[in-house]
């Protein structure tokens, strides 16, 4: 008898815990707690056990009945609450009403990152025209007519003396014409190159030029500023190098490389197996440039730098085709 009581207790516990619906609840009630249920039939059996065992078994049976009734009631309350409340009427799992936020173009985002760093370093932001004169784009920047340096920048001409600017550097001249030193500014904008369109080159791209002109500006300060920029833009422990180069409007000139972040300097396809990635060009502003805006280059010195935004974003986001920027496929726009 005692074994039966134990067994029914275990069975009941299992069954009542498995109940999830009203119908199942009723099944459990009929099976255990009804007039013909298993507990009632045990009470029937009790009548036929020997007298001396009755009190102890009776106590056990009563305790089983109380246990079953209590647990049944708790379960019943749970099931009813579940059914009457939100669950059936309010489906919280329905999709929410979403509002699609727009996105700035990845080139704008990259430019903004660059701008905010230089603004924090005290640089103003200036703009200039895209359709420029030969004078501002070349002549004033120490690219004499018929000089091979002009071959460095394939140019779209709209007339003999007007062209689509090939760099944002002409804005330097426009600022210097209007302003006296000290000048500290960056100049972002669209520039054009007369090159065939391919995965690696496009007929236009975006550049940021920067200048700092004052008394006693040195190459070392240029170095310091650009390292500060690169560390903020890329990462604090980045490795870099300055390499001698040539631009007509700076002397001495340099290019800044950083360790290729794809191969960590071991050499890969992206860095042409050199371990380094070129990120910008820079140098001390050439005295001939100062001459064209009537600055005294004995007194005034300055540095200039320039970088291409497409290339920086290309490297940062692993974009493998420059044309993607200008195709504006919505699937591309949404990614950033």
């Amino acid at each position: 008898m005692i074994e039966k009581i134990e067994k029914i207790k275990i069975d009941f516990e299992n069954d009542v815990n498995a109940v999830v619906s009203v119908k199942e609840l009723e099944d459990v009630r009929i099976k255990y707690l009804s007039r013909n249920g298993s507990i009632a039939s045990l009470f029937e059996e009790l009548k036929s056990v020997p007298k001396e065992e009755k009190p102890a078994l009776g106590k056990e049976l009563n305790s089983l009945r109380n246990f079953a009734q209590t647990n049944f009631d708790i379960r019943k309350e749970g099931i009813e609450k579940n059914n009457s409340s939100s669950k059936s009427k309010l489906d919280l799992s329905l999709p929410g009403r979403e509002y699609l936020l727009g996105n700035k173009h990845i080139l704008t985002q990259t430019l903004n990152d660059i701008k905010s760093i230089f603004k924090s370093l005290g640089f103003s932001v200036k703009e200039g025209p895209e359709l420029e004169s030969d004078y501002y784009n070349f002549e004033a920047l120490n690219f004499p007519a018929n000089h091979p340096a002009r071959d460095m920048q394939d140019t779209f001409f709209v007339s003999k003396d007007f062209l689509l600017r090939t760099h944002t550097t002409p804005v330097q001249i426009r600022i210097m014409e209007k302003q006296k030193p000290p000048i500290r500014a960056i100049m972002p904008g669209k520039v054009f190159r007369n090159e065939a369109v391919s995965a690696r080159s496009y007929c236009l791209f975006h550049q940021v030029d920067g200048i700092y002109i004052d008394e006693n500006v040195s190459f070392a300060e240029l170095n310091g500023t650009l390292v500060a920029f690169a560390k903020q833009f890329y990462n604090e422990d980045l490795k870099y190098r300055f390499r001698a180069s040539y631009f007509p409007f700076t002397e001495p000139s340099a290019e800044m490389d950083i360790t290729c972040f794809l191969c960590k300097g071991k050499g890969c396809r992206v860095c042409k197996h050199s371990g380094w990635l070129e990120i910008l060009g820079c140098g001390m502003i050439d005295p001939n440039v100062f001459k064209s805006v009537n600055y005294d280059s004995e007194k005034i010195t300055g540095y200039a730098f320039g970088m291409g935004i497409e290339r920086i974003a290309l490297l940062k986001y692993g974009i493998n085709d420059i044309r993607l920027y200008f195709e504006n496929d919505f699937r591309f726009l949404k990614q950033f």
Partner: peptide
């Protein structure tokens, strides 16, 4: 060698109001 260019430890910032023509 440009390796010998020291990196100045601090960069001075301008006190003048900064203009941002792109703002």
């Amino acid at each position: 060698g440009y390796d010998n260019i020291p990196t100045v430890p601090r960069v001075s910032i301008a006190i003048k109001k900064q203009e941002d023509e792109t703002s």
